[in-house]
């Protein structure tokens, strides 16, 4: 059996590669990354000259990695919803979606193809940013395996952002509405996962969050915080060896999940699951055989 590309991925990449938007997007991406690099370098120089530095500038250069990585994570988090939120609604506006649905492609292949093409475009951007990232490794003394982990987390984040975008795109008729709603949805997910913990901390007598922190497994911000903490300091933000919380503060389950790198991997699995559920929901929505009778079309 021959392995074949999803036709939508191939078409999207073909069309994008011929567009000037890709070149301008790359230019903007590289510019932001360069500015971040220079700013981070300036801050590191300031720190090394400071009263508390106690070492030379090279000791601080390791911080170029989180600075550049966070900049890339933020760009990816902002770009992917724009790409995918207009994917289905864009096809509808272009009036190509109905034809697509009459082919043998399943609704899940269509939505996953759209997300996959967005992820590949993002990886293209990340690859283009490698020379700047490489400087952080050369002068920062970090292992190349960290770069691999970083790319994997970027894939995970773009999958989540892409699935949110595609879900909104499946529900909205207009691209602009889908983009706006996907940003709202994005921030609601970030906010809602913090909410139980904040409520519990605020209303409990001892001010402890307890197991309500488990919901943070689905939060990409917390995932990245944990990722950088593990990579840079080798400890968890919740507990473990360099414990920030005691066992009674975070609850039994949370405390034990925070041992070693368990939380990071579990969080990655939870985010992946969430993204997959969003993809399934989007596929269900675009399937004409499943969705409700819908609006009445203009008849001839």
């Amino acid at each position: 059996m021959r392995l074949r590309w999803n036709p939508i991925v191939r078409k999207d990449l073909q069309v994008t590669a011929r567009s000037m938007r890709l070149s301008w997007g790359l230019f903007a991406y590289e510019t932001v990354l360069t500015i971040t690099f220079l700013l981070a370098l300036a801050v590191i120089q300031q720190m090394s000259r400071g009263f508390y530095s106690g070492s030379n500038v090279y000791g601080y250069l390791i911080y170029l990695f989180p600075a550049l990585s966070i900049a890339q994570v933020c760009i990816v988090a902002l770009i992917v919803p724009v790409i995918t939120a207009s994917a289905i609604s864009g096809e509808k506006e272009r009036q190509t979606f109905d034809i697509m649905l009459t082919t043998c492609m399943s609704p899940f292949s269509i939505v996953s193809g759209k997300v996959m093409s967005a992820m590949l475009r993002i990886l293209f951007f990340v690859a283009a940013g490698m020379p700047i990232m490489a400087l952080a490794f050369v002068v920062g003394g970090l292992s190349w395996s960290y770069l691999l982990y970083f790319v994997l987390t970027i894939i995970l984040l773009s999958l989540l952002s892409g699935s949110i975008g595609i879900l909104c795109s499946a529900f909205c008729r207009r691209s602009i509405t889908a983009v706006i709603i996907s940003y709202v949805f994005y921030f609601v997910i970030y906010g809602l996962t913090f909410l139980p913990m904040l409520l519990r901390t605020f209303f409990s007598r001892n001010g402890y969050a307890g197991e309500s922190m488990l919901l943070l497994l689905f939060n990409p911000i917390v995932f990245y915080e944990e990722f950088f903490m593990q990579l840079m300091a080798g400890e968890s933000i919740f507990g473990g060896d360099g414990s920030h919380f005691t066992r009674s503060e975070v609850g039994f389950l949370t405390y034990h999940l925070a041992q070693g790198r368990v939380w990071m991997f579990l969080s990655a699995a939870c985010i992946f699951l969430l993204a997959f559920l969003f993809l399934l929901a989007a596929a269900w929505k675009v399937n004409p055989m499943h969705s409700s009778s819908g609006r009445r079309r203009k008849e001839r």
Binding site: R4, W5, P7, R10, V15, D98, M100, T102, T103, C104
Partner: peptide, 25 residues
């Protein structure tokens, strides 16, 4: 199925258009 409208993709040639839909089948 041939609908009453004709949606096009920018930057796609006739041959590629046919190839896209053929691979979708």
């Amino acid at each position: 199925y041939v609908p009453d409208f004709f949606g096009v993709y920018d930057n796609l040639k006739v041959r590629e258009y046919m190839d896209l839909y053929g691979s979708m089948y």
